[in-house]
Amino acid sequence: MASQGTKRSYEQMETDGERQNATEIRASVGKMIDGIGRFYIQMCTELKLSDYEGRLIQNSLTIERMVLSAFDERRNKYLEEHPSAGKDPKKTGGPIYKRVDRKWMRELVLYDKEEIRRIWRQANNGDDATAGLTHMMIWHSNLNDTTYQRTRALVRTGMDPRMCSLMQGSTLPRRSGAAGAAVKGVGTMVMELIRMIKRGINDRNFWRGENGRKTRSAYERMCNILKGKFQTAAQRAMMDQVRESRNPGNAEIEDLIFLARSALILRGSVAHKSCLPACVYGPAVASGYDFEKEGYSLVGIDPFKLLQNSQVYSLIRPNENPAHKSQLVWMACNSAAFEDLRVLSFIRGTKVSPRGKLSTRGVQIASNENMDAMESSTLELRSRYWAIRTRSGGNTNQQRASAGQISVQPAFSVQRNLPFDKPTIMAAFTGNTEGRTSDMRAEIIRMMEGAKPEEMSFQGRGVFELSDERAANPIVPSFDMSNEGSYFFGDNAEEYDN
């Protein structure tokens, strides 16, 4: 993207840094990872977990959730003011799984939030270390993106479920800051804005008074975040219109849905970061690795190297396929839920299948599930090659597409044709070009129609051997075009429920 120079890199967003050079960025990201790792080690000690239990991804998720809940100030305040039966607002906890007599047992633990905050700050040299908290939120978000298709949420806001490739980060909490905003897809931002506008339509006082002023500035800020994701002048001009509207209503909703559809071809720039579970960072720190000293990046080879040398386990339900569970977590670790499966298959070195073909449910185990038949197995999170994460949407291309997802959002900077089903997408653009945004709409449609099938995206960008740390010898991959490109292809993934 041309304006790259004016933006802070995501590592800076990730670490609240002012302008830093590459070495400083690597050190501050490393410091953040160190903090998460030290916190995780301490929690495993508190909970008396064995090494194996500490490497269980379900335990990692519970521990991450506990610290996120302990620092969720708004919710904590709300819980104190609106006490609900049987919930102690000062405590947080969740299921911890232990191996007892050759069987997995679930144990519900409860801790004072104050105590968890103390352990977290102690692991982070006394700081609140917001960057580390956001990092864990993005890992949870990436896992949700890989596990669930947001059909219901899309339909509720009037969008087409086939636009799911635009929904990265749709389950990120509001408090995820600049680093969170960077990884949100165009569809996620559109959905947040539509929800806001709908509230304004239904509630006369939404934009009024002292609160209304705050609401208005939040609305304009979200519009600017979305505008910054678009790469064409016409899309940005249309966002200006939406932002400046005196009284946002149905016309703005129409414009936003139009823009979301246009992003299936004229893709937005959305950041991709490899955020790993805390149970990967903990053992690495415990083994003596100093992330701050060595430096770390979320968008280069580092996460690949770390996963190459990590042992992570997962509980497996009786009829689940461990290899499929591994694929789910591998995609989440690489922030690749909406990437082209052919690119992923090449990088991973084994075939990556669409969601609907995987015999696996989510990673988390519900409290009512029976533990008797639970097994555990090693997650295979290694890769054959590594590639640089991208934040450009890439230019655009036609490809055989599917009944489910009709476009992709690249996660890796790797040369390819970008699949999208042009006739299906263009069919949504018939007729409606009147109104105050008509010239911009016409211009956007013209650009979409001009998108050429034979153009290559990320020209000359390749993948790298894991021994090639400096990215000196790019390998331009070859793809098996007979395979499906979309992950949520004609899909039956479970729906995400809060």
Rank of each mutant, 00 (worst) to 15 (best):
M1A: 11
K7N: 13
R8N: 00
M13P: 00
E14Q: 06
D16Q: 10
N21C: 14
N21I: 05
E24G: 01
I25A: 02
R26N: 00
S28Y: 02
K31D: 04
I33C: 14
M43A: 10
D51R: 11
D51E: 09
E53G: 04
V67A: 14
N76K: 08
H82F: 15
H82N: 10
A85S: 12
K87P: 04
D88E: 03
K90F: 00
K90C: 03
G93N: 04
P95M: 10
D101N: 12
W104E: 01
M105C: 14
L108P: 14
D112C: 12
R121V: 10
Q122C: 14
T130H: 15
A131V: 12
A131W: 02
A131K: 00
T134N: 10
T134K: 00
H135D: 07
H135T: 04
I138T: 08
I138N: 07
D145H: 12
D145V: 06
D145Q: 04
L154S: 01
R156A: 07
S165F: 02
Q168V: 04
T171D: 13
V186L: 12
M189F: 01
R195G: 05
M196E: 07
M196C: 11
K198N: 12
I201T: 15
W207V: 07
N211D: 11
N211H: 04
G212W: 09
G212P: 03
R221E: 12
R221Q: 04
M222C: 10
C223A: 14
I225Y: 11
K227P: 04
T232P: 06
R236I: 03
G249E: 08
I253H: 09
L256E: 05
L256T: 10
F258S: 06
L264Y: 04
L266F: 07
R267D: 03
A271N: 08
A271V: 08
A271T: 05
A278L: 11
A284L: 11
A286K: 09
A286I: 08
E292W: 10
G295A: 08
V299S: 04
D302P: 14
D302G: 00
P303T: 11
F304V: 15
S310K: 00
Q311I: 02
Q311V: 09
V312R: 00
L315E: 05
M331L: 15
M331E: 02
N334A: 12
S335N: 10
D340V: 08
L341R: 02
L341F: 07
F346I: 10
R348E: 09
R348G: 08
K351Q: 13
K357N: 14
T360I: 07
Q364E: 03
E369C: 06
N370L: 12
M371W: 02
D372Y: 06
S377T: 14
L381H: 07
L381N: 13
A387K: 04
S392H: 06
N395D: 05
Q398I: 06
Q409W: 12
Q409A: 15
L418H: 03
F420D: 00
F420I: 12
D421K: 00
T424Y: 01
I425W: 00
M426F: 02
A428R: 04
G435Q: 05
R436L: 06
T437W: 00
T437E: 03
T437L: 01
R446Y: 00
S478R: 11
E484A: 10
F489C: 06
